[in-house]
Computed example of a mutant assay.
Amino acid sequence: MVWVTMRNSWIPFYVVLIGWLIFQYRKQAPGLILTLVVAVTLSDQMASSVMKPLTLRLRPCHEPALQKLIHPVLECGGTYGFASSHAANAFALAMALWLLVGKRFSWIKWTFLWAILVSYSRIYVGAHYPLDVLAGAGIGVVMATISAVLQQKVVERFFIVKKNQV
């Protein structure tokens, strides 16, 4: 779980994903990749810059009453944990991929299993409560949906030639 929770562990996955999108979608790939980046950025900022300062909920590893009950396997991280940025980002990526290319590639649904694993790892290492992870997952799904809908509107407005205009 320590390896799963480390952000740098997934860099090869992200590189392969970007390469695959470029190979599969060529001209459309930049827009798809930009949409993924926007979804993850929005989810990360909502969790880290809005929710954590707004709620000021201590992480389990910073909660004095829990110090004798938990044994963190990593450094605790920031003081506040609601909502989990790891969960938000993982679910934003999985949901955005599903919305953008899931109809064509049904195996994309397995990225949700990856997102669940990453999210659970945050509970395992003592960085988050289950509700932190659920809230993060919800934030990720919402931000991915917003990003995918906006991407579709941009594509329809600027890149699809309508039949009556031809």
Score class of each variant (00 low, 15 high):
I22Y: 07
S9R: 08
A90T: 06
L97F: 09
S119M: 13
F82A: 09
V73P: 05
S119D: 11
V37P: 06
H62Q: 14
T41F: 00
A96Y: 04
M1T: 05
L32C: 05
K163N: 08
K27G: 04
G77S: 07
T5N: 14
V149W: 06
V154C: 09
A90G: 15
V141E: 12
L74M: 10
A29P: 06
I139T: 07
S9L: 11
I123C: 04
D44W: 02
L93G: 11
A87C: 12
V161E: 10
S121N: 13
L74Y: 12
A90Y: 13
I70H: 00
Y14L: 01
E63H: 02
W98S: 11
Q45D: 09
L134R: 04
H128N: 03
G77P: 09
L150E: 04
F23E: 00
T55K: 00
R59A: 03
V15C: 03
R26M: 02
P60T: 02
T41W: 00
A137K: 11
K109T: 15
L150F: 12
Y25V: 03
P72Q: 05
Q165M: 03
G19R: 06
Q152V: 04
H62D: 04
V37A: 14
E63K: 02
V133T: 05
P72C: 12
L74V: 14
L34P: 02
R57E: 00
M51A: 03
V37N: 08
V142W: 02
L32M: 11
S106Q: 15
I146S: 06
M95D: 11
L100Y: 15
I139R: 05
L21H: 11
R57A: 01
G31E: 01
L99Y: 08
A127K: 05
Y80R: 02
L150R: 14
V16R: 08
A94F: 12
A65D: 15
S48Q: 00
A90V: 10
A65T: 09
V2Q: 15
T41Q: 01
I108S: 12
L150N: 15
A65Q: 15
G31H: 03
W10R: 09
K52V: 00
G77A: 08
P60E: 00
I139E: 05
N89T: 14
I160R: 11
L58R: 01
A65L: 14
Q28R: 15
M95I: 13
H62N: 09
S84P: 10
A87E: 12
L117I: 15
L36W: 07
Q152C: 06
L69A: 15
P64S: 05
F159I: 07
A148S: 15
F23T: 12
K52M: 01
Q165S: 09
G77K: 08
K109E: 12
A137G: 14
T55E: 05
A148N: 02
S48N: 08
V15G: 03
H71W: 03
A96C: 13
L58I: 00
G31P: 00
V15Q: 03
L131S: 15
L97T: 10
A29S: 11
A148W: 05
V142E: 02
V125K: 07
Q151G: 03
M51D: 03
L117D: 09
W3E: 11
